[in-house]
Every structure is written in C-alpha cells, then in structure tokens.
Simulated assay, not measured.
Amino acid sequence: LRRAVELDPNNAHATAVLGWQICLANDDADGLNFIEAAESRAPHHPRFGLWATYRATAHLFMLDYGSAVPACEQAILRTPQYYQPRLSLAWALLGAGDHDSAKKATEEAEKFEGAEITAKFVCEMKKWSANSPHAEQCNQVLDELLLMSS
C-alpha cells in the first residue's frame, strides 16, 4: 500500500486502507491522517461511506473508544443501510462502559442481517484485531459484544 500511495498519491482508497493498517498494526494514530486525507480528497468516491468505518475501527483497534463513537455515528450517517457501523458503535460503546446503548446498537444492526450477524462480525473483527498490539483487549470487548447478542 505504501508503494501504491507513492506511485499514485491521489489513490484515495489505497491511502485510506494504508492509514487503517498503520493504526491497526502499529497502534499509531498518525494513520488516521491518511484516512482523513482520503475523506477530504475524495468525498464522491464510491467507498467514501466506508472510510468513516475504517476510521472508527482504527480507533477501536487502538482502544480509543471515545473517538470511535463519533466516527461510528458518522459512518452510520454515510451508510445507513449497512450493519457494520452499528456493530462497531456497539463495540465502542461497550468499551466506553455504556452497555444499554451498546445493546440498542446491536439490535439495530441485527435488524439488517439477523441475529447471526453479530457472531460473524465478532469473528471477523477478532481476525483483524489479531494483528493489533491490543488484540487481547479487543477480544475481551468483542466477547462481551457476542454475549450481549445471545
């Protein structure tokens, strides 16, 4: 991704994914600058709506729940028919200690895809967070999220 961005600095999606990976693998908030640059440069890109979700999960992988909540809310506004930002919001709210709101966000997500979507989401996020220096802490909150949906 670094090479792709070097070759084409205007490739907004490569820039956003690179930023996300920097946050995920290195616990480095500077990766958010890449995501935000992609968002500001390409507001009409087909993946623009997803970049707020990338930003939200980047915060989650770095255990920054307070910043993840508004990023998730922005992702929900950009992609209102997509379950993932709602489950990311539930993860952020659980991490911040707001169990009631997390439960509500989980229920909203499950309206789109059914109750099994939470287990699928947790499984996917555990795979991604395995690359994070905070994998254990991510897994703890994700386990809580899974129990909440049962």
Rank of each mutant, 00 (worst) to 15 (best):
residue 136 E to Y: 09
residue 60 L to C: 07
residue 123 C to H: 14
residue 80 P to W: 11
residue 21 Q to R: 10
residue 9 P to E: 06
residue 144 E to L: 12
residue 115 A to C: 00
residue 150 S to R: 15
residue 47 R to S: 09
residue 24 L to W: 15
residue 100 D to N: 14
residue 31 G to E: 07
residue 37 A to L: 13
residue 67 S to Q: 13
residue 3 R to F: 11
residue 149 S to E: 11
residue 88 S to D: 14
residue 142 L to H: 10
residue 13 H to S: 03
residue 121 F to V: 01
residue 72 C to R: 01
residue 89 L to A: 09
residue 97 G to D: 10
residue 118 T to R: 04
residue 111 K to D: 09
residue 54 Y to R: 12
residue 126 K to G: 05
residue 50 L to T: 10
residue 33 N to H: 11
residue 4 A to E: 08
residue 23 C to P: 01
residue 29 A to T: 08
residue 24 L to E: 14
residue 43 P to I: 13
residue 33 N to S: 13
residue 45 H to A: 07
residue 102 A to W: 09
residue 87 L to I: 05
residue 104 K to T: 08
residue 128 W to H: 13
residue 67 S to D: 09
residue 131 N to K: 08
residue 74 Q to V: 10
residue 135 A to W: 00
residue 87 L to M: 13
residue 96 A to S: 12
residue 31 G to I: 06
residue 134 H to P: 05
residue 135 A to P: 01
residue 22 I to W: 08
residue 52 A to V: 03
residue 11 N to Y: 14
residue 96 A to L: 00
residue 137 Q to W: 03
residue 25 A to G: 02
residue 36 E to D: 11
residue 18 L to G: 00
residue 124 E to Y: 02
residue 14 A to E: 06
residue 21 Q to K: 05
residue 71 A to W: 09
residue 65 Y to W: 15
residue 56 A to R: 03
residue 61 F to K: 08
residue 73 E to S: 08
residue 79 T to V: 02
residue 37 A to P: 05
residue 12 A to Y: 02
residue 47 R to W: 06
residue 16 A to H: 01
residue 146 L to T: 07
residue 65 Y to H: 10
residue 58 A to K: 04
residue 36 E to W: 01
residue 32 L to M: 14
residue 32 L to K: 11
residue 25 A to P: 05
residue 34 F to S: 06
residue 118 T to Q: 02
residue 47 R to Y: 10
residue 89 L to D: 10
residue 51 W to F: 09
residue 92 A to W: 11
residue 76 I to H: 07
residue 59 H to E: 00
residue 36 E to Y: 03
residue 32 L to E: 13
residue 57 T to E: 13
residue 91 W to K: 00
residue 83 Y to L: 03
residue 123 C to Y: 10
residue 141 V to A: 10
residue 37 A to S: 09
residue 35 I to P: 00
residue 3 R to P: 05
residue 141 V to G: 06
